[in-house]
Nucleic acid binder design. Structure first.
Lengths: 225, 225, 225, 225
DNA sequence: CATGAATGAGACTTCATTCAT
DNA sequence: AATGAATGAAGTCTCATTCAT
C-alpha cells in the first residue's frame, strides 16, 4: 500500500498532512466521537499505531485538524484582501465572493461544522478559533464597512451586525454543504450562485436609502463567527 | 426527587416530555455520541431503566427529540404567519422577527445544532427535517417574497436565494448560541438585536433599486435549511 | 454461573469481597501489570464490566486489595497481642509464632509480595502500608523488646534492629511461599517449622550473655517491614 | 552521546554490559512488565533497534540480567569464602558481613527483587536461580554450620533453618532497599549496621546454651533463597 | 550496524442495553 | 412500573517487535 515512489523518509514528511486530511474528512462526515481513530489511520493509508506516532491522542488530532486548516485559509484570506482595491463596496463584493467561493469548494469548509459541533466538548478550541479566525476576519471586514460608511457609500448601521449579515449565511452554506446538503435529497442548492447573490443583496441593502428605521442604535457587539 | 405536587399518574404522563427536554439539552450541549443514556435519565429525574421503557434506544430518543421540538415550533410558526397581514414587506419583517426572536430564546433553538450535527449519521433525520421543517418554511416565505415581487415591492431576484439570505443568518445565530456563544468568551452577540437588524437589512436590499446587476438569472434552487 | 442461592441483592453485597480475593490471588501470582482486569473478573465469576462497577480502575483495585487484607490481619494481630501475657520473652515467642503461622497459611501472606513488587510504581501504597502495618507492628514489638531489656531478660541491643531480625525472616518466607516456593522445585521449606525455630533462635540470641561485642550503639532506625 | 574516549570497537564490546545494567536498574525500579524495551535502550544510550540486535526479546533480556549479575556475585562469594579461615563462628561472622555489605550497596542487590517478582511468570528463572545461587550458597553455609556444630561451637539445631535465619533477613533488606526503602519515607534503615548486628545476633543464638527447647527435631528442609 | 517508522495484537475502560428484583 | 446490577461489544491507546533505509 505505501507508495513505492516515496522513500520512508519522504513518506514520514507527508504523514501528518495526510492524517490531517483524512481526519478532517471523517470528523466532518461522522462527527468526532463517532469516528474511530483507526478509521482515520486507514483512510490515510497507515495503521492505527502510526496515527499515534504523530498525534498523541484523538483529541490532539482534532485540535491539529482545526488549527491547520484554519491557519491555511486565513492566511490566504489576508493575502487576497491585501490585493483588492477600489471602493469599500467593490472591495467587499469582490473579496468576499472570491474567498468564500474558493473555501466553499474546499475540504476546509468542513472546519466550520467541526468547530460548531465540538467547541462545547473541547473549550480550548473556542479560544483558538476566536483569535485565529473570528477576530481577524471580523476586524478586516468591520474596517472596510466602517470606511464605506465614512465615505457615504453605506448607510449608518451597526457595523458588527452588518458584518454578521454578510458573513453568517456564507458560514451557513458551508455548514449546510456538509450536513443536510450531503444527504442526497433532491434540492441541491447552488452554493456558488448563492454566495454571489447574497453578498450583492446585503451590500445593496447597505447602500440603499433607509426605507425603514433600522435598529442601528444598539451597541455593536463583537463577532460570532 | 419526585415532585410531591404531582400524582404518580400525572408524573407518568409527563415522563416522555421530561425525557425529551433533558435529552435536547444534553444532546445539544455535548453531542449525541458523547451523551450517555444514563445522563439523560438522571437529568430527567428517572433511572436508566425507565428511559428504555419510553424509548427503545438512544437513537430513537434522538429522533423523538428532533421531531417533537420541530413540530411544536413549526406549528406555532404556521399560526403566526396566518395572523399577520399587510404588505409582503411588512409581513416578512414582522413575522420573521417575532418567530425567530421567540425561537432564539427557547431550548428548541438547539435542534438546529442537533440536526446539523447528526444528519450524516442518521440519514432518516434528513428526510423528516426536510419535509417537516424546511419544505413548509421555504414554501411559505417563498410565496410571500414572490407576492412582493409581483406587486413591485421587491426587485426581481432569485427567490430561493432571497429566502436563504433572510433565513440562514437566523439559523446561524441559533447555532452560534449553542456552540461558540456558549463558550464564555467576552463577545456576547445580542441575538435579539441582530435578528431585527438583519431582517430589515435584507429586506431593504430587496426593496432597493438595483445598484448592481444581480445574479438573478440562475435557476431558483430549492431550500437548504 | 451466578450462585442461584443468592439473590441479586445478596450477591451485590458479596461482590467487592469476591473481587478482592480474586485480585489478590492473581496479582500475587502474576504481578499487577501482567494480570488482566478481565481475568480478575472472570476469577470472581463476573464479567469485565462488573469489576468496573465496584472499582473505578485496575489501580484502585490494587490499592483496595492491599488495604483490605492488611487491615484485616493487623486487627487480628492487635487482638492477639492484647491476649498474651507473661514475660517479654514468652510473649514474643508465643505471639509471633501464632500470628505468623496463621498469616503464612492465609492468602493474605501474598500482600507482602504485592507491596514489595508495586510500591515503586504506586507510591501512595507506601504511605498507607507504613502507617497501617509497619508502624503499629514495629511499635508493638519494639515496646515488648524494650520491656524485656529493662527487666534484664534481654541484652542491650539496638531495638529496631532486633525487631527486624525477628520479623524480616518471617516476612521473607511469606514472600518466598508466593515466589520461588511456588515453583515446584523439590525443596519445599517447611514454613511452619521455620517460623518457630527462627523466633526461638533469635530470642535465644537476645537472651544470651554477649559472646561478641554487638554493634548496639547505632541510633535505632525505625522500621522497614 | 557516545563517549568520545571509547573507540567504536570498544563501545560495541561494552554494549551488552551497558544494556544489562540499564535493564537491571529499570526492571528493579518499575518491574519487568511496566518497563518498556525502548526505555532500557535509551537508558543505555542506544536505540530500540540496537537492543534487539543483542537480545532477541525483552524476556531474554530479563533472563540475561538475572544470570549475569548473579554469576558475577556468586563467583566473588566463592572467592571470599575460600580466603576466610578460623573457627566456624568467626568464619561466618566475617564472611557473611563482608559479602552482604558489599552486595547491599551494589546494584546487584536488586536482582533479588527481580527474582522474587518475576519467577512466577518465567519459571525457567527458578531453575537457574536455584542451581546457580541458592544451592551453592546454602551448601557452603550449611557445611560451615555443620562443622561448627560438630566442633561444639554451636548448639544442635536444624541446619537448614539456621542458614535461613542467618540469610533471609539479609535478602530481605536488599529487597527492602529497592522497594519500600526507595520510597522517601523518613525511616531510613541503616542497612550496613543491620547486617552486622543481625549476623552477630543469630550466631549468638547459635552459640548460646539452649535456654529454650528448640524445635530442632523437624527434618531439615532445603533452601528457600 | 544503527536507527526509528511502522505494525497490530492486546490491554484498559466505557456504555448501550437487558433483565431479575 | 421502576430500579440498577450485569453484560460484552467496541473504542482508545500502548508497546514489543520488525524492517527499510
Amino acid at each position: 500500500m505505501p507508495d513505492p515512489e516515496l522513500s520512508h523518509r519522504r513518506r514520514k514528511q507527508a504523514r501528518p498532512q495526510e492524517l490531517l486530511d483524512a481526519a478532517l474528512e471523517l470528523f466532518v462526515e461522522k462527527g468526532f466521537a463517532a469516528t474511530r481513530a483507526e478509521e482515520v489511520a486507514l483512510h490515510a493509508g497507515v495503521s492505527k499505531g502510526t496515527l499515534y506516532r504523530y498525534y498523541p491522542s484523538k483529541e490532539d488530532l482534532l485540535k491539529a485538524v482545526i488549527s491547520h486548516h484554519l491557519s491555511a485559509r486565513i492566511a490566504e484570506g489576508a493575502d487576497m484582501a491585501a490585493r483588492f482595491e477600489g471602493s469599500a463596496d467593490a472591495l467587499l463584493r469582490g473579496m468576499l465572493i472570491d474567498w468564500w467561493t474558493q473555501l466553499y469548494d474546499s475540504p476546509a469548509a468542513g472546519v466550520f461544522k467541526l468547530v460548531i459541533t465540538e467547541v462545547r466538548n473541547f473549550p480550548e478550541i473556542a479560544q483558538h478559533y476566536a483569535s485565529a479566525v473570528v477576530e481577524p476576519a471580523h476586524q478586516l471586514l468591520g474596517t472596510i464597512v466602517r470606511r464605506g460608511m465614512a465615505q457615504g457609500e453605506f448607510r449608518n448601521v451597526d457595523i458588527g451586525h452588518a458584518v454578521h449579515s454578510l458573513v453568517l449565511p456564507l458560514v451557513m452554506i458551508c455548514l449546510h454543504r456538509h450536513s443536510l446538503g450531503a444527504c442526497a435529497l433532491d434540492w441541491h442548492l447552488d452554493g456558488q450562485a448563492f454566495i454571489a447573490q447574497h453578498v450583492n443583496l446585503v451590500l445593496d441593502g447597505l447602500c440603499a436609502k433607509p426605507p425603514s428605521p433600522l435598529a442601528a442604535s444598539r451597541p455593536a457587539p463583537s463577532l460570532p463567527l
